[in-house]
């Protein structure tokens, strides 16, 4: 029995048509990327490759610095993600368990911090990073012989160095991660811990035996979101990294596009594919958690 106005043949066709249009809009742009990456003679325009080969990828990794960019991106985003997971794990636990007066103001502030666009902070951030860089530089000069200073600064510097970039990337992901972990620990009953306390376990033991195993899904969620955000970020590497040796995938890709001579579109597409695949993988893993995080925030 179907009421008037319910699904009919024409109705089904309209639905299918609408869906097909939306799907086409979403999928069509990828076609160029997929074809150009395997076309040794790729152009800016969509064209069917005459020969299919991996030569663009070979060039990206062997002749260009693609491998370096990939490794740099993995190191920076990996370390930033690890830092976020550790800090948010501890911080979220404290936020969940504390009954202190600063709890509510702190939670409000991290929501407000989360909405600040990084572009609005970029100039003062540059000043902060510059000041930090000078102090670190002085410290490094005091300890290391002069020809070690430059390589060391690449690691621990704040301008054109990784330590500053990692700290900054991690900090910008902290509010969301703290929020996720706080909500996550709220759902873990205190009784689990109290049993361990009765057995005389100190905090270290409670952490290893009770909290860490229970917190794993939450840590995975906050880590994944932090990784996705770091991986896609363009503003911070653009502003704070200038050495070619430290360049990461987003800037490597951008510099390949900005070349003054002929742009090599096959190479560009190959680097873009290498840059996109980890992002898609991370997103596929995080997808399920997206709603939980959102509605987790919804319920507080």
């Amino acid at each position: 029995m179907s009421a008037p106005g319910d699904a009919s043949a024409g109705d089904g066709a309209a639905r299918a048509g609408l869906l097909a249009l939306i799907a086409l809009y979403c999928a069509a742009p990828f076609l160029w990327l997929a074809l150009a990456a395997f076309d040794p003679d790729a152009r800016l325009f969509l064209q069917w490759p005459e020969t299919v080969s991996f030569s663009n990828f070979r060039r990206a990794f062997v002749e260009e610095d693609g491998l370096l960019w990939l490794l740099n991106s993995l190191v920076v985003c990996g370390l930033a993600t690890l830092l976020v997971a550790v800090l948010a794990g501890f911080g979220g636990y404290a936020l969940s368990r504390t009954r202190a007066r600063w709890k509510r103001p702190f939670l409000y502030s991290i929501i407000l911090i989360r909405v600040i666009p990084p572009t609005a902070l970029i100039v003062p951030l540059y000043k902060v990073m510059l000041t930090a860089n000078l102090s670190v530089n002085a410290a490094v000069r005091a300890v290391l012989p002069s020809d070690w200073v430059r390589p060391a600064m690449r690691m621990v510097g704040f301008i054109d160095g990784y330590l500053g970039l990692i700290l900054l990337l991690a900090t910008l992901q902290l509010p969301l991660a703290l929020w996720i972990m706080k909500t996550f620990f709220d759902a873990i009953p205190r009784e689990f811990e109290e049993a361990a306390i009765m057995d005389g376990a100190g905090f270290g033991k409670r952490l290893r035996r009770v909290l860490l195993p229970l917190a794993m899904p939450g840590l995975a969620a906050s880590g994944l979101f932090a990784f996705i955000a770091c991986w896609g970020d363009f503003l911070l590497p653009l502003t704070f990294i200038s050495s070619p040796e430290l360049r990461m995938l987003p800037l490597g890709l951008y510099s390949a596009f900005m070349r003054s001579d002929q742009v090599d579109y096959g190479l560009l597409a190959a680097i873009a594919v290498v840059y996109t695949l980890p992002a898609i993988l991370a997103f596929a893993l995080a997808r399920r958690l997206l709603v939980q995080t959102f509605s987790g925030g919804l319920k507080g």
Partner: peptide, 20 residues
């Protein structure tokens, strides 16, 4: 609890609140 939250709070202070 305060000690556990301190590193996060410091980072947010140095890289967000102070720059703002």
């Amino acid at each position: 609890n305060r000690a556990l939250l301190l590193p996060s709070a410091l980072l947010l202070l140095v890289f967000v609140i102070y720059p703002a």
